[in-house]
Amino acid sequence: MSRDTTYRPEASRASRPLLWIATLLAIVTMAPVAWLVGLSIKDNRELMLGTESVFRVPYTLINYINILYSSQAFGWFFNSMVVAIGQTLGVLVLSSLAGYAFARLEFPFRRTIFVIVLFGLAVPEQAVIIARHQMFNWFGLHNTHIGLILPGLSSAFGVFLMTQFFKAIPRDIDEAALLDNASQLRIFWKIMLPLTLPAQATLGIFTFLHAWNDYWWPLISATRKEMFTITIGIASSQQNFAQSEGLGFLSAQAVFASLPVLIVYMIFQRHIVTAVSGGAVK
């Protein structure tokens, strides 16, 4: 169904006032963000005298320049990058392999195993986090990148998504390849995988965003300051912001930390919107 034909302008004429209310809501929604950006371009000393100075000149980029000199924020940023990219690649590889087999190959107990994996979808992080924390302790994985990456790889969501996608590919494509005596791995790599690129993109974007924004696991696993992800770093610096770097610096740090996800969002907005709305309601 094409998107454009299903929008109904004649039905929406009556809803014009709704659009105005929505616009008003958007302004209210954006006000806190504007406030944060405003704080980030003010000098800390001026803010100490009163934050209403946000509405007056002069503005400055000094807080952003200070981030460049604060090696800490960059270290956190680097950790987040390693964790988010590592987790994304891991999830893509594991989910593609498993999804392919679940959707298109036969092996003993396939159905049973798939149902067990699906049950994993219903297990929230909270139900396993205490045991995980102990296990990672046994193996000395806390305060390491690999320790931050691993838990995210166990999510059953990717496997479920990739299985659905592999199922949608017509059967005759790989049957033709099999007639040519191509190996199973070759079929997967050369024929199947390229066909699932849109799904890979969707899964990749969501995994990246999720890993970048994850809060609880890094909070308890990365306890050494130099192993913080940027999310945990921002969280830890806001807990005692009154006596620390000042509102302006913290705001600039928050803007800096949000840039990667906002850039990912802006580039892939159309993709994300389709994935969110198409995947859940069908």
Binding site: P32, T231, I232, A235, L250, S251, A254, S258, V261, Y265
Partner: peptide, 12 residues
């Protein structure tokens, strides 16, 4: 798409 740490900072 923002992380909870950013959201709470904004609202604090």
């Amino acid at each position: 798409v923002l992380s909870v740490a950013i959201v709470t900072l904004i609202w604090r």
